[in-house]
Amino acid sequence: MIEVIFDLFTSHYNYWMAIILMLIGLYALIAKQNLVKKIIGLNIFQTAIFLFYISFAEVTGGTAPVYLPEGAEALYVNPLPHVLILTAIVVGVSITAVALSLIVRIYEEYGVMDEDELMKVVRER
């Protein structure tokens, strides 16, 4: 029994951790009032997903997907998720940039950064 759990753990812990990170990010997105905190949460959420991708690209005992010098046979890890995540990281930073500029704008307009207060101010205006 314990062994099974242990096996499961060793075989999936990466995913689990990634999931926990995701959840932390989500939690921040929901529960945190501060807008910047939300974006931090978003970042964590996104990177957790990236981690998830990289995790399933991993092959035990593999090497990085750069061809070794001619002739050397090797077990490479799956390169495709890496490519995807490269793209996704860029997307992530783009979103972060836009989000932060929005926050700056909101702060300039309303002078608040907390969601509840913001809603209050918005409704009053």
Partner: peptide
């Protein structure tokens, strides 16, 4: 999420469909 992970190939499994199929192809 946890429920979904259960059926996933093990971490580092060289026989997972992803690795076997496109991964090796590439």
């Amino acid at each position: 999420l946890f429920w979904a992970v259960e059926d996933m190939p093990a971490f580092g499994d060289p026989d997972s469909p992803a690795t076997r199929y496109t991964g090796e192809m590439f």
